[in-house]
């Protein structure tokens, strides 16, 4: 696939799988979705983190934070 054809997917998967409802979500301007959630590497807590906030777990102070898994549906062949 050439680079020009690539588009950032904006659809959110539906529960039944297979079909996508195209409903673009705005990550930048939305006030509620502005904070990202990360997973603490030490205590496994879900850590909300604002833009520019120190990278640190509020519960245990751990400095290793992991990204959450994609919210998008992933399709596999059961083979």
């Amino acid at each position: 696939m050439s680079r020009e054809q690539y588009q950032v997917p904006t659809g959110s998967p539906t529960a039944d799988g297979g079909s996508f409802k195209v409903a673009p979500r705005d990550y930048v301007s939305g006030s509620s979705d502005n904070t990202m959630h990360y997973l603490c590497g030490d205590c496994a807590a879900r850590v909300p983190l604002d833009k520019g906030a120190p990278i640190r777990c509020q519960r245990c102070g751990g400095r290793v934070l992991y990204k959450e898994r994609t919210k998008r549906m992933v399709q596999f062949e059961a083979r």
Binding site: P13, A15, G18, V74, F76, E77, A78, R79
Partner: peptide, 18 residues
């Protein structure tokens, strides 16, 4: 035949689970 994984945070990988 097909598995649509919305979330799988278990230790078993998606393709192995499928």
């Amino acid at each position: 035949e097909t598995v649509f994984i919305n979330n799988n945070t278990s230790v078993i990988q998606d393709e192995v689970l499928a």
